[in-house]
Computed example of a mutant assay.
Amino acid sequence: MSSPSTPHPAEGARAARGRPPRLDQGRTAQAALELLDAAGLDALTMRRLADAVGAQAGALYRHFATKQDLLTVMAERMLEGCSAPPPEGDWSERLTVLAHRMRAALLAHRDGARVYAGTHSTGPNTLGFAETLIGVLRGASFRDEDAARAVLAVVNFTVGHTLEEQAALRPGGPDAAEPGPADPDGLRRAVAAQGLPHLTAALPVLTSTDFAAHFAFGLNLLVQGLRATDRNGPAGAVEAGRP
């Protein structure tokens, strides 16, 4: 049984006749993440969240002026632990660890990438993660401008990839009888019907659900591009003759 000092997020106020439980942003954000995992982003409404924490819907707006504010706090909470310094090693290995860490954090919650996309938290988890990433690159003698743009590229790639990954794995119809957003058989039929030889050759990878391999490949491309960056010439320049 939960103690009064640690109420379960799903406990409603309907059962209580007295004063409703005092809201705090952290407990409310955790309840929102639990609702997200249970029902998905589309079902997460301020009214359902208010019911989950045993409060009136209007009371939530004292902490979150809009639903976007709520999503920003949820995104900040999801990145908890991601800013810890990665193991010692080459800068590319450390950057790779951090990117995989972020992907895992987003995958830990249903529709996690959808929640994170478009948020701009200034909380300690989000800023700490960016600080660690930039620190890895500046420590490897990347210019400030290049380090900043590299971080944007890595974060945007990670969020975008995870967004597509979670969308592809989202269940289909009510009883999963209908295909979900990703329909490999439909793609195979369309390619065969149009007689597209290059796509036919690529179908085994294009229809693969090995998203970890897809992510690792794309991330490696980013890393190799960063290796080609000339850290001594003008910002953004590329060394001539580098493969």
Score class of each variant (00 low, 15 high):
A147I: 02
T200F: 02
R94G: 01
S83D: 09
L133F: 08
E34R: 15
P20G: 10
A167C: 08
A235T: 15
G180M: 11
V223S: 03
G241C: 01
V238A: 09
I134S: 15
A213H: 11
V238H: 03
S92C: 11
A50I: 11
I134G: 15
T200W: 04
A57Y: 01
L169T: 15
P204Y: 02
Q224H: 12
G218H: 06
F157A: 09
L137M: 15
G218K: 10
M78S: 04
L35P: 08
A43G: 08
L137H: 02
D175M: 13
R110K: 10
V115H: 01
T200L: 06
G123R: 09
V136M: 05
P9R: 00
E239M: 02
A50M: 07
S3A: 14
T207A: 06
L206A: 13
R62P: 07
L199S: 11
S5M: 10
A52Y: 08
E34P: 11
S92I: 02
V155T: 12
A55F: 06
A237L: 04
A38G: 13
P4E: 09
V238P: 01
P20F: 02
E80G: 08
S121D: 12
D230W: 00
Q194M: 09
L44M: 07
H109L: 00
Q224G: 07
M78N: 05
L203A: 00
H100Q: 10
P181W: 12
V155D: 10
L137A: 11
H198E: 14
V97I: 06
L41H: 04
L133T: 04
N156L: 06
A99K: 06
A176G: 05
S83Q: 14
A13H: 04
P20A: 07
R17C: 07
E165I: 07
S208D: 11
V159L: 00
V223M: 09
H100F: 13
M78R: 05
T158R: 05
G195Q: 08
G195H: 06
P181L: 15
L221V: 13
H214C: 07
